[in-house]
Design a protein around this nucleic acid. Structure first.
Length: 511
RNA sequence: GGCGGGGUAGCUCAGUUGGUUAGAGCACAGGACUCAUAAGCCUGGGGUCGGCGGUUCGAAUCCGCCCCCCGCUACCA
């Protein structure tokens, strides 16, 4: 990994159902960080994709009478299309059914065999056919002469299955050392504690192959076995960089990954298994795993039976993608679960986007169009209130890079919207409409400063609401190579003399 | 059960080396203005900071007990 390079990933999605709000959230969150790092002058590689192996997919394909791969082509496409609808800026979209991925998984497997971390043995336990799951002794009771699991009540049978194992147990200490050395490997901190706790309670070796189904990557030299889902799926992060060719420019530039964005439900796989596999294979683990919370609807996890599903596609069609992106990023607080509802979505769009940022742009652009023929020129006279707003804006933006380096998007958004408050107040206080007749110079200075503020806000909001902010920056004639964070280092975005274009309403108010 | 996080205004949350009248945004009410999407600005109402007890000159903040919510407690992912 080169300095100033940034590799960020979403989970690869298991396409056994339609994309839901949780997928949308993970993807948008990752996209926001990717876009931010780009305007922060980093070279970014942003990856998403689909995880297409396993029993569920095999069965679903059988049900509709399709070859699993053809079936996957179809459903993976749905997720690929979603990246467009969500306006993701991903550089690649990987599927675990691709050749490059097979090559990569095979290589990782062979490395682990070679290092002695994978061995062949037998997996034994109580298996429930209907649950497709194994249970521990303490989860089993006898009822009417039958063994059943207390977990779901379904009947279980004793099964012994040949399986390859990964020597996870021998990585316990090394993992704990790794977490200690890399304090921010797992964020937020609460999740880090969970993981450390789990590891401290002891790790058992992990079964990493299955013989009960065939839809997957076959174990090299033993085709009876299919490679366990996580050893398969996680490796996608390497495959996309052309691993096993570690001399490849992509791999050299972007590994280890800067951050894997994931939901808290798959934290263990990313924070324990994944670094263990990699350490065993003598590959550097990623720099960070960020586990976000779930999207809830009315305090409940969204589910079909509860009828409280908010479908991302519908929301986008009704309200727009920038609106959905902004709402999700604002409403869900750092790392914890977030409740969403149409009501709060509409409130959020109206207050932040329409009334605040949108209207700020509108009032300034309209005024300049009607009174200045779209031309503004500033002089070097700086009033006390100018100094004041510049100073306050600087205070608000001081820590923004740091907030984003810790995935703390809430503080970021709060700071930026506060710049919008400041600017609205500035205009109210300065009353440029009163200066039309007798002080055009001062009026110009005020308007120019307002535009400068709008430019800064628009650049800072660009990762979150790219469409709307691009319209504004276009209307301001800000060059592409100026749409970055260099103004944080006390530079101005706009020239002293500027000509702007007309700007249409950015966000319609919802009534 | 064990370990961890949390309970602050109607809603979402900020706020600990303990210290003046506990904060923000949204929502609500009133006011002055008019460039603007009846937007923006100003002012205001509203909180026994989960409960009880303790330490202290002083506690949302420290200690003890209790109540409630959430997460983790491995091979579905």
């Amino acid at each position: 990994m080169k300095q100033n390079n940034f590799y960020i990933t979403t989970p690869i999605y298991y396409p056994s159902g339609q994309p839901h709000m949780g997928h949308a959230y993970s993807s948008i969150l990752a996209d926001v960080f990717a876009r931010f790092m780009r305007i922060n002058n980093c070279k970014v590689y942003f990856l998403t994709g689909t995880d297409e192996h396993g029993l569920k997919i095999q069965k679903s394909a059988e049900k509709v009478g399709l070859d699993p791969l053809i079936y996957c082509d179809k459903i993976s496409k749905v997720f690929r299309e979603l990246t467009k609808k969500l306006n993701l800026s991903n550089d690649d979209f990987i599927r675990t059914t691709e050749k490059r991925h097979y090559k990569s998984v095979n290589d990782l497997w062979n490395r682990l065999i070679k290092s002695g971390d994978i061995y062949l043995s037998k997996y034994k336990g109580w298996y429930s056919v209907s649950d497709e799951a194994y249970y521990n002794d303490d989860e089993i009771i006898e009822k009417d002469g039958k063994k059943i699991t207390t977990f779901s009540g379904s009947s279980v049978e004793w099964v012994e299955e040949e399986s390859f194992f990964f020597k996870l147990s021998s990585w316990e200490k090394k993992l704990l050392e790794f977490y200690a050395r890399n304090e921010k490997f797992i964020l937020p901190v609460s999740r880090r504690n969970e993981v450390i706790n789990f590891v401290k309670n002891g790790l058992k070796d992990l079964s990493v192959s299955r013989t009960s189904f065939t839809w997957g990557i076959k174990v090299p030299k033993n085709h009876k076995h299919v490679i366990y889902v996580w050893l398969d799926a996680l490796t996608n992060y390497l495959s996309a960089l052309n691993y096993p060719n570690t001399k490849d420019i992509l791999f050299k530039s972007f590994w280890p990954a800067s951050v894997h964005i994931i939901g808290k439900d798959i934290l263990r796989f990313h924070a324990i298994y994944w670094p263990a596999f990699l350490l065993a294979a003598n590959i550097k683990p990623p720099n960070r795993v960020f586990g976000h919370g779930w999207i809830l609807s009315g305090d409940e996890k969204m589910s079909k039976s509860k009828g409280n599903i908010l479908n991302p596609q519908q929301i986008i069609d009704t309200y727009g993608i920038d609106q959905l992106r902004y709402y999700l990023m604002k409403e869900v607080s750092h790392g914890s679960d977030g409740n969403i509802s149409l009501k709060s979505l509409e409130r959020c769009i109206n207050s932040d986007l329409a009334n605040n940022y949108g209207n700020l742009c509108q009032r300034i652009f309209s005024f300049i169009k009607n009174n200045c023929n779209n031309k503004v020129k500033k002089t070097n006279k700086v009033s006390n209130s100018d100094k004041e707003i510049i100073k306050k804006t600087r205070e608000l933006t001081n820590n923004l890079r740091n907030e984003m380096n810790n995935q703390n998007l809430n503080n970021y958004i709060k700071a930026v919207i506060n710049i919008s408050f400041l600017t609205n107040k500035y205009i109210n206080d300065e009353e440029p409409w009163k200066l039309k007749k007798n002080n055009v110079e001062k009026m110009n200075n005020i308007l120019h400063l307002a535009l400068e503020q709008i430019a800064k806000i628009s650049i800072l909001f660009n990762p979150i609401i790219p469409k709307a902010t691009t319209k504004v920056l276009d209307a301001l004639n800000v060059k592409n190579n100026s749409r970055n964070l260099s103004f944080l280092d006390r530079k101005n975005v706009l020239a002293e003399k500027i000509k702007i274009k007309d700007l249409n309403i950015l966000f319609k108010k919802i009534t």
